[in-house]
């Protein structure tokens, strides 16, 4: 599948064999871009990229530095950090969305990419849901119960909210496990300390 609708995965990995292996596993389902180091990774990154597989230990720019620059550019992409050891929760505060410990199996890689794409869907739905809920609250505080009962706009809004609620409950990408839960919270902007 190489049509333009396929999600885009960017692999940033300094070992060509490893990058090529990931590519083989992903190429059927996704449009894959490969970068051999951090600088090239940042060059190949744009709005179209959905998921970045980022090796943490690379010569030149480290994975951590690349991650920082990705976040500075405020692109909506999800980043899976590829690490040598499994990090603790606290390291999740660094701002990546998932981690993979080497060596990575194919199912594991595919699962992670799918999960990150699902989480993007969840965030998008939650954002949409919030916008509608706010609109509903505005109507409810501005109009009387009788006016609301007669309002087609209000009835439609309620239908859409109910529909989104249903969709959200089926998209559990945000909270399937503990690490997902933490990154889902980070995504809603709760990481800024006061």
């Amino acid at each position: 599948m190489t049509d333009s609708a396929a999600p885009v995965v960017l692999i940033v990995e300094d070992e060509p064999d490893v990058a090529e292996t990931y590519n083989l596993w992903l190429a059927d389902e996704y449009e894959v871009r490969i970068a051999g180091d951090g600088d090239e990774g940042l060059d190949k990154l744009d709005e179209e990229v959905d998921v970045v597989l980022l090796d943490r230990m690379m010569p030149g720019l480290s994975g951590d530095e690349v991650l920082e620059r990705i976040r500075e550019r405020e692109l909506g992409c999800r980043v899976a950090m590829v690490t040598a050891v499994e990090p603790d929760f606290d390291i999740l505060e660094m701002g990546f969305d998932a981690y993979l410990s080497k060596p990575i199996r194919s199912e594991e890689l595919i699962e992670t990419v799918e999960k990150l794409l699902e989480r993007s869907t969840y965030d998008r739905l939650l954002q949409k849901y919030y916008a509608l809920v706010e609109k509903q609250a505005t109507l409810e505080t501005a109009k009387s119960g009788a006016e609301l009962a007669e309002s087609d706009e209000y009835a439609q809004l309620q239908d859409r909210i109910a529909g989104l609620q249903e969709e959200l409950s089926q998209t559990m990408g945000g909270v399937e496990d503990d690490a997902d839960f933490i990154t889902a919270i980070q995504q809603i902007g709760g990481s800024e300390d006061t």
Binding site: D90, L92, E93, I182, I185, Q186, I188, G190, D193, T194
Partner: peptide, 11 residues
């Protein structure tokens, strides 16, 4: 206001 910290605590 540290929602991430709260999330980690809950977890």
């Amino acid at each position: 206001g540290d929602l991430t910290g709260i999330g980690i605590g809950i977890t």
